[in-house]
């Protein structure tokens, strides 16, 4: 991989659901977690991967230079307006923060809003220098019990808590996004931990959504077994929303 190259699986323009306004979402390849419900399995490995889909072969992951990526993002600058901009998603976008440094600085200087859709489980020491260039943090909230977090998704709950605190103290614009599934995140002890945690951050809006199987075609294309999930009904989503609200947590349901 050449210096400064950024590994990207997809750049999706005119996104309405990845932060404020109209946004271009850049899907960065590579993740430090392995959530069993991941909807973007092609973004887990940090290397390009070949796939076969409906008899057609291709590669997930293409390296972009800084200027190529900037050019692609700036194509829709007229549509960003005051609120919109670019959202880096993944995978875990913070993994490539070093490679993104110059792109982030340029976008920030040009007044283009930057959002990170992150699981926030990379120690902040690794990305704090760029933290101020980022305007919005869309933060996954998954499993908070330390040992389960580590066992199921390979994450570090303490690191997560420290990162959230760090951003909150900086006064950054944040939103928590909670993927709900009966198998893991909806377990009662996890929900209790989530509630306790959110009570500390009552000023941060929360979005809940049901884990879906929209990424299953991608599992298939990589030769991986497709995960199957018990359906989380609208009633369950409504119940969770109500439960959160009773404790003063602002929750919104995102129906996918």
């Amino acid at each position: 991989m050449s210096k400064g190259s950024i590994l990207i699986t997809n750049i999706q323009r005119m996104c309405f659901h990845d932060g404020p306004g109209i946004r271009t979402t850049v899907f960065l390849k590579g993740c430090n977690l392995h959530c069993p419900w991941c909807a973007n399995p092609e973004n887990i490995s940090v290397l390009p991967q070949n796939y076969e889909r409906n008899g057609k072969r291709g590669t997930y992951g293409r390296e972009y230079s800084d200027s190529e990526l900037l050019e692609e993002i700036l194509k829709d600058r007229n549509f960003f307006g005051e609120e919109g901009g670019v959202t880096f998603s993944g995978g875990e976008p913070l993994l490539q923060i070093e490679r993104l440094r110059s792109v982030l600085t340029t976008l920030h200087q040009r007044g283009i809003s930057i959002a990170m859709e992150t699981a926030l489980q990379i120690p902040y020491q690794a990305w704090k220098d760029q933290a101020d260039d980022i305007d919005h943090y869309l933060i996954d909230l998954k499993i908070l019990k330390k040992d389960i977090c580590n066992m199921i998704i390979g994450g570090d709950a303490d690191c997560y808590r420290a990162n959230v605190r760090f951003l909150h103290e900086k006064g950054k614009d944040m939103i928590f996004r909670i993927p709900l599934n009966h198998e893991y995140t909806l377990k009662e002890d996890n929900l209790c931990l989530i509630e306790e945690f959110l009570e500390e951050y009552k000023d941060v809006p929360v979005e809940i959504f049901a884990t879906h199987m929209l990424g299953n075609e991608k599992y298939k294309s990589l030769g991986l077994e497709e995960p199957v999930w018990e359906k989380v009904t609208d009633t369950v989503l409504d119940q969770i929303k109500e439960r959160f609200e009773k404790r003063g947590i602002r929750a919104k349901i995102a129906r996918i």
């Binding site: 005119m14 306004g21 007229n78 549509f79 307006g81």
Partner: peptide, 11 residues
Amino acid sequence: KMVQFIKGSIR
């Protein structure tokens, strides 16, 4: 957001 899209299209 569609209003923003039309405004963006004008720009």
